[in-house]
Nucleic acid binder design. Sequence first.
DNA 1: AACCAACCGGAGCACCTGTTCCGCTTCTGC
DNA 2: GCAGAAGCGGAACAGGTGCTCCGGTTGGTT
Lengths: 218, 218
Amino acid sequence: MTVARPTTSARSDARRNRGRLVVAARELFESAGVDVPAREVARQAGVGIGTLYRHFPTRDDLVDAVLEGAFEELIAVAEQALAAEDPWEGFTSFIEEALVLHARNRGLKDVVELQAHGLRRARAMRRRLRPLVAELVARAQEDGSLRPDFAPQDIPLLFWASDRVIELAGEVAPEIWRRQLGFVLDGLRTSAATPVAPVPLTYEQLRLVGRNKRGGTA
Amino acid sequence: MTVARPTTSARSDARRNRGRLVVAARELFESAGVDVPAREVARQAGVGIGTLYRHFPTRDDLVDAVLEGAFEELIAVAEQALAAEDPWEGFTSFIEEALVLHARNRGLKDVVELQAHGLRRARAMRRRLRPLVAELVARAQEDGSLRPDFAPQDIPLLFWASDRVIELAGEVAPEIWRRQLGFVLDGLRTSAATPVAPVPLTYEQLRLVGRNKRGGTA
DNA sequence: AACCAACCGGAGCACCTGTTCCGCTTCTGC
DNA sequence: GCAGAAGCGGAACAGGTGCTCCGGTTGGTT
């Protein structure tokens, strides 16, 4: 049984330290992923390790607090894409802009990829995103530009793939993922379609992916 | 200064133990990747940890000894693909068959992806593979089937991408990488080509990728 | 000013890695 | 058989991680 913990305290030092922890964690998560050692976050925030655990009893609590902003950006990107006049343009710009965020924020990538990280907010974000993505796909398919055998469940696969390219080559060639994505998007046009393995992942299968951590890379 | 160490010993128990270590390591590398703890390998081989380090002073020595066979398979796949009558068929079958090997052998994936693992043999394998791959690409482009702006240096990006899908979804849907690859291959046909980010990775950049380990993932 | 609950810090514990070191065992040549 | 070199096993060390616990401090209230 976990006792409810107010996110804001009566004491000014506590509030200040909490803020410092969030700032430090945000910086470190962005550049090094959500797996940075807790001691590192505490050190960068200039507080003791005990203070970190006092404010965030679980790693996921910290992740949730830190990535809220990034989630909002992601959803904003999807909403903007839905507002595009051209459905194909909307579809591709969502993927591209989302990947720009991924490229800038390693922690976001970690959380989006695996189910293993994050808590309520991460899950809420996924729930809010799903219908937007489904609509982007549907719109582009009705338009005739996106191949009809593409499924919304294929979107995560695109992200996994490009995220891997970002992760491996990001430091050497930060924009090379655009090239790889370009090839993929060319294959998603109706005009390019050729029969592929016909069964996409089910949502249930997607739910199971990455349950047991290990983000792959760095 | 490392003293030269004969790979075969005069003593029967030493030879037996070395063999057991290689067998155990091969099984574990295939199912769990090259990062399995050394103790695990020793335990599975029924041998002390000291014995492991006696036979393989560094992790890379073990990796080299174990993955030699997998490298040969990979090169055989490339040679077979070069023998295909249809250049496009050869090109795609190389990628598909290589990925079948990757899907079966997590350790092979690790070594092919990163420069960080393996030693002489891994490097020799990469050197032997490169001209074969270049030829597969050239053949398919001369044939007119593969888009002319594709470069041999883009091949690793395809592997990174599909490997990630295998890694994340492999347990839930072992064949789903074929669907993702199908989309990509459709985008690699000349008929599907649309301008993409025009500059591929240089070989020098490829050399730098994954120098500092931690593939990301799992 | 004085009190005390809330908070802080970090030593410390438990666990996991890679790698070394060395007393004991076993194989092989004689 | 015997001797000694080669090999074996695992305790032990070093470094890194998550997380807890508690003596000491401090902020805010009275």
